[in-house]
Structure formats: structure tokens, C-alpha cells
Amino acid sequence: MSNSILSLKKLNLAYNKTVVVPDLDLDVREGELIALLGPSGCGKTTTMRAIAGLMAPHSGTIHIDGKDVTRMPANKRGIGLVFQSYALFPHLNAFENVAFGLRLKKLAETEIKSKVEHGLQTVGLAHLATRKPAEMSGGQQQRLSLARSLVMEPKILLLDEPLSNLDARLRLDMRTELQRVQRETGVTMVFVTHDQSEALALADRIVLMKDGLIEQIGTPSELYNRPRTKFAADFFGFENIFKISGNALVGDAGSLQVSYQVDAEYLAWRPSAVTVGNGSYNGKIVGVAFAGEHIEYVLETLLGQITASSPAAERKFKVGETIKFDLPLASGFALYP
């Protein structure tokens, strides 16, 4: 706990009687970029709001920089939040939006000016200081919102779905922008997202949440390559996940006797891990799609449909063909509930 800037202990969050987050423990190290990842309703936004002080936890504690802030009002916590909607002040221009918090701190005018200018520069908006938010593009508003939080030099910067309102191209720009800002300022960032690719690309560590509970915490490569649970595997793109029951794999349509036995609840294969063209089982090809270097097949099997891919250079099959395939234990992935 000594080197964690943010520490949540046994946090219980509820709206009226509806418990959203029953019991949450989390430590964030200084300078980290953390993603709270999960489907909508998993409690990630609620957790973020609790950290910011916009909602009071039912029980549990929140420590920032070693200090208990559980009962501290939001305006005293020194936390920045970039809202999903940006929440810019429409009646103030870009400069005044960024200066808003500094003025409340009663800083000297010259100091405010230099801080605001530096802040606008950091996000590349120095030339738009006199524009009102309504006169800016979505990407510019996003960056203005970021600058407004950054100039306050928050201990932690929270970002709510920071990329969701941007189009695909801007999203890529903003990703790099966020990483650059984080490198330059060294601020601890916690961002909320439902998009696994966003979390994988941006975060140092990902906190995967489900129904208010932490499903798995780890680096992007840990979560992507070694998901621990079925939910995590689902979330990170495993397609063929089957329950193990003794010597059989159980799918939607039926089961398949296999020669191995493992100590796990589920076994999963990425499409590329499925052997196509030889093996001990039969499957009928019902779909073929060319995806650049790979060909993706959809096979109708005793288990139900499974997805496989093989390098485009290999032998091709046609829809309707019945082929051999295999689900080798070696490339399979053990998962726990």
C-alpha cells in the first residue's frame, strides 16, 4: 500500500438498494495507466464515480496517496475526470474553460495565464483559445476537456470512455495523444471502457470487471494470452470454448469424445489453434471467408459450429466439403469459472 496512489478496500457501492459493486479491492501504482474494462452494467463507471467522490460508497474505504478520502467531498480530492460527454462549459471559451479550476484556486492572473497556455499547448489547442466549445470538433472538445483536468495537476486522472465519442480515425490519434500526455506528465490515469481493443492498446494494466466483481487483473498480454476464466476468454476473442465433462467436450449442439482429460472447467481454442484438414473428427464446412493472410472457416460439427482459420497459402476447402479437423490439447486453453 505504501507505493500505491489509489487503494480501494472492500468497497461496496449501491444506488439506493441496488448493489452495483459488492466488494472491490484494487491498488493502483503511481504513474500507471489502468483500464477498468467490462460490459455495460459491470460497475466500472460506478467505481470511477466513487473514486471521484461523485457517489458515496455504502461501505469500504478509498485511500488516495495514503490518505483516507472515503468521506471527503469531490471538490477536495484533487482528482481529474474527463467525462464521456466532455462536460465543457458552453458559456466559456477554451481559455476560460481551462482556467475555471485555477481561478477557483485563486491563483495570480499571470500564473493562470501561463498554466492555461501551457495546458492548451500540451493538447495542441493553443491556437483555439478564444473558441467556444460549440465551435470545436469532437476531437478538439475531447482534448480541451483533457487540458482542463490536466492543468489542475490532479493526483489521479479519471477518463470515462475517452474514445467512444470519436470516429475511427480520431480514435487512433487520441490513443497516441493520451499515451504521450501520460508519458509527459506522468499522471496516474484510470480509464473506463467497454472496448477490449482500446484497453489492450492503451493500458499498462487491465482490470476486467463482471457484475461488480474483478474477474482478472493483469497486463494486456496476460489478459489476452492467458485469460483465466471463460468470461475473460470470451471478452478477449476466444471463439471456441467448450465445457469439459469427463472425457467429453460439450458444445451447443452436442458433445465430442476426446482422448484427454484435464483439470479445468472449460477448454478453449483460438481459430488459429484448430487444426484443419487432418485430425480425428469430421466437420462440414458451412462458411468460408478470406481474411487477408488467413482463410476463416466455419465448421458444422457434433459440438455445434466452430471457427477455424488457416494460412491462406495452405490447401483450400469449399463450402459443403466434409473435412477432418482436430482440437489438440496442446493448443487448447484451460479456463476456470
Partner: peptide, 13 residues
């Protein structure tokens, strides 16, 4: 939007 007020509070209001 009411999140504007939350933003203001987080900036120290």
C-alpha cells in the same frame, strides 16, 4: 447536461 455541474465540482467548486 448535469455532468457539467459534476465537472465544476471536481474542479474545486
Amino acid at each position: 447536461r448535469s455532468d457539467m455541474e459534476e465537472a465544476a465540482v471536481l474542479l474545486g467548486c
